[in-house]
């Protein structure tokens, strides 16, 4: 978690984001797998963790990134992580989460430090990539139910001039609400859809992972530091 609020997403912040996501997945791997049990095949946490550990290993092996250095662009960092996820996770999560990061990285292009509007555009590109590949829409009880409102919340906050960390915190909050919204839904995509009405009453594990991803972004950008400062000022 960044102790200072960041004004832009640079390569170092992108690395911190990915490290934070990997830590969250490692910590909650069991929970994610438990969520997958009633609706899927009990492996979401295990699979995603295999991918985030590979991302960590790549960050460590990459000299510039190893020490959390600022080399490269955030787009390169996210693109490389996305390719690693595609190559290591398997299942549906690998292509979907991997595509999300690859598209986000591509949308950032060569910018060395992305502002709130640029990050918003990157998140929008991630969502579009996921929707195109997975062909899921809001209400299908998938990761899109968390990602779609999160992107919208980020864009809204950015348009209203909120600082980058606060926009990310808004996105994380919307992702959490979106994940919770999958509970009463009957799944129409992914493995949970085979259950028909029996898929009702369960939180979608992929949506929960999206919540972890965006919470890690808010943490890496120092949203809490910003809030603490605001508290002191009051």
């Amino acid at each position: 978690m960044s102790a200072v609020a960041r004004e832009a997403l640079d390569a170092a912040a992108a690395r911190e984001w990915l490290r934070g996501f990997a830590a969250a997945v490692a910590e909650r791997s069991g929970e994610l797998t438990d969520l997958d049990r009633p609706v899927g095949d009990s492996d979401h946490g295990v699979n995603l963790r295999r991918g985030t550990e590979a991302v960590l290993a790549a960050l460590d092996a990459d000299g510039a990134g190893g020490a959390g250095g600022a080399d490269g662009t955030p787009g390169q960092v996210l693109g490389a992580a996305g390719r690693t996820l595609v190559s290591t996770v398997g299942g549906a999560s690998g292509p979907l989460f991997g595509t999300a990061l690859r598209r986000a990285g591509k949308a950032l292009g060569e910018v060395p430090a992305a502002d709130a509007a640029q990050v918003a555009a990157a998140l929008r590109a991630a969502l579009e990539g996921v929707v195109r590949l997975g062909e899921a829409r809001v209400g299908d009880a998938t990761m899109v139910d968390a990602l779609d409102p999160a992107v919208a919340a980020f864009e809204r906050a950015a348009q209203e001039g909120a600082p980058l960390p606060r926009a990310a915190r808004a996105a994380a909050g919307a992702a959490a609400e979106g994940a919770a919204s999958t509970v009463p839904l009957v799944a129409r995509k992914g493995r949970a859809s085979y259950l028909g009405p029996r898929s009702r009453g369960h939180l979608d594990p992929g949506a929960r992972s999206v919540e972890l991803l965006l919470t890690a972004l808010a943490d890496a950008l120092g949203a809490d530091a910003l809030d603490a400062r605001a508290g002191e000022g009051a």
Partner: peptide, 10 residues
């Protein structure tokens, strides 16, 4: 692939 997990594109 891994157990009950599709192989990766590679």
């Amino acid at each position: 692939g891994a157990v009950f997990t599709s192989p990766v594109p590679d």
